[in-house]
């Protein structure tokens, strides 16, 4: 770490960014806080209800279930995408014509608008017109994501793997590319096993990007909305109603402002806690591992 010069005037360089983001972040957040302690029948007439919305929310079965579904979903996603991403990154070519080919193709799903991702999978999974659904049906597997919760979950999870594993792959690949060849040569001379190379050379080098990957994947899966909404609409029943979907249903569908605001705040606090933990771990890992050379 380079010692940075203390310069309070640097605030002026940050100020425009601060103002723009604050405009979009602070005013809405304050509004949400205001709504969360009041009730309304429309026409901007509000009356004070204190913390009733929060009490309702904390004790509501609906919120608990959405929250558990969300945790389960994020957990499954991380458990599959991170190892898979590392495995694919390790097998990718390091040079030659295969590199741009892999990179371009793998980055492609990341740049498809989220609702189009949903549409693609909605079509792909349909039994009547979709390749996946049709093939499964032809194989005699009973698969219908609009009726069967398990099929719906599988569809949403496979879709997310399709959509986002590339991010983990590209991050890990970037980490792997930064390892100098000398490391591998030294390992070969020492007769290190494939596992040893991975454990003691590649993994430490990927440490940081891997943390970024986990952070981004966790956060983004935690606020996933568009893709499952397009594919399943949160159904069948409520089986794929994740937190964001539930929130939008409350706020815009039912116009239940107070309840939605209380839920937003609790949701936001959870996100804040997770971001803080990740951020602290990340900055401390960055500082501690460099002098030790990564362990």
């Amino acid at each position: 770490m380079i010692a940075k010069q203390v310069n309070q005037k640097a605030w002026f360089m940050v100020l425009p960014v601060f103002l723009i983001v604050a405009f979009s972040a602070v005013i809405p957040l304050m509004t949400v806080v205001n709504y969360s302690v009041q009730d309304t029948f429309g026409n901007n007439v509000f009356f004070w209800v204190g913390f009733d919305w929060f009490r309702d929310l904390i004790h509501s079965e609906r919120f608990h279930q959405a929250f558990l579904r969300q945790l389960l979903f994020s957990g499954i996603i991380l458990a599959i995408e991170v190892p898979l991403g590392i495995a694919i990154a390790l097998t990718m070519p390091k040079k030659g014509w295969g590199v741009p080919l892999c990179l371009v193709n793998m980055a492609l799903p990341l740049l498809i608008p989220w609702n189009v991702v949903g549409t693609i999978w909605q079509i792909f999974g349909r039994v009547d017109i979709g390749l996946l659904g049709h093939t499964l049906a032809a194989l005699g597997i009973d698969y219908n994501y609009t009726q069967d919760p398990i099929a719906a979950w599988l569809t949403v999870i496979v879709m997310d793997i399709w959509h986002w594993t590339s991010l983990v792959v590209l991050l890990c690949y970037a980490g792997l590319c930064s390892i100098p060849d000398a490391y591998y040569q030294a390992a070969r001379i020492d007769g290190a096993s494939r596992w040893a190379i991975f454990r003691y050379i590649q993994l430490p080098k990927m440490h940081r990007v891997l943390l970024i990957a986990i952070l981004l994947r966790f956060m983004d899966s935690f606020m996933i909305y568009t893709e499952p909404f397009v594919v399943t609409g949160g159904g069948p029943g409520n089986s794929t109603t994740f937190l964001s979907i539930d929130l939008v249903k409350l706020a815009i569908g039912q116009f239940d402002l107070g309840n939605a605001a209380a839920m937003s705040l609790v949701y936001f606090l959870i996100i804040l806690l997770c971001s803080w933990i990740f951020y602290t771990v990340m900055s401390n890992v960055g500082e501690e591992s460099s002098p030790k050379g990564g362990a």
Binding site: Q5, V6, S24, M219, F222, Y225, A251, I271, S275
Partner: peptide, 26 residues
Amino acid sequence: YSFVGDKHLFFWLLTNRMAPPAVFAL
């Protein structure tokens, strides 16, 4: 440069990257 509140400002900026758009939509 280092300036008053730089680390916290940086963290606050990042939390906005993590905040779910659904919270802010309405």
